[in-house]
């Protein structure tokens, strides 16, 4: 069985015929070449594959491509400006060195952008709890929390 889907990815409208079992993460990486969305665990725990689906952060390895029919998807490739200017959250991760190996970073940034929009405050405990769905095995999270706070402040000021 193959299903026709229409979706918008990073502002580009697409039509595809997909097997129902194709994951959104597979569609993005294998068919669209958007390999910034990382697959870390493939068991929906690590959050490296986080993208925005109609504005909400989701783990793209736990969403079927057919479920994204009619939706708008935003990946890490789509958050910077058209001229390459980094998104404030990306800039904050660079400024505060919120990474070591960088594998979790795309998911962290996508999760953090939503956190910045929805968190009632930017206390350290709020940020740490808000990032529960994103695992980093390098940093111990110290600089990630600093980066998210700075990025969120920049987003709120911007």
């Amino acid at each position: 069985m193959s299903i026709a889907i229409n979706l918008t990815v990073n502002g580009v409208r697409l039509s595809r015929e997909v097997d129902p079992r194709l994951l959104l993460s597979q569609l993005l990486r294998d068919e669209l070449g958007l390999t910034g969305t990382h697959v870390g665990c493939d068991t929906s725990q690590c959050g490296a594959c986080t993208v925005h689906l109609d504005g909400a952060s989701v783990k793209s390895c736990a969403v079927l491509a057919v479920q994204a029919d009619g939706a708008e998807v935003l990946t890490i490739e789509g958050v910077a400006g058209p001229d390459g200017t980094l998104h404030p959250m990306q800039a904050a991760f660079r400024e505060h060195h919120g990474l070591q190996c960088g594998f979790c970073t795309p998911g962290m940034v996508m999760g953090a952008i939503e956190l910045a929009r929805t968190a009632p405050d930017l206390e350290e405990a709020t940020i740490r709890e808000g990032l529960e769905g994103n695992l980093c095995r390098c940093t111990g999270y110290q600089n990630i929390v600093k980066a998210v706070r700075a990025g969120a402040l920049a987003m709120r000021e911007g």
Partner: peptide, 9 residues
Amino acid sequence: IGDAQVRNR
């Protein structure tokens, strides 16, 4: 429940 991404779905 779960984490932010899980709560969104």
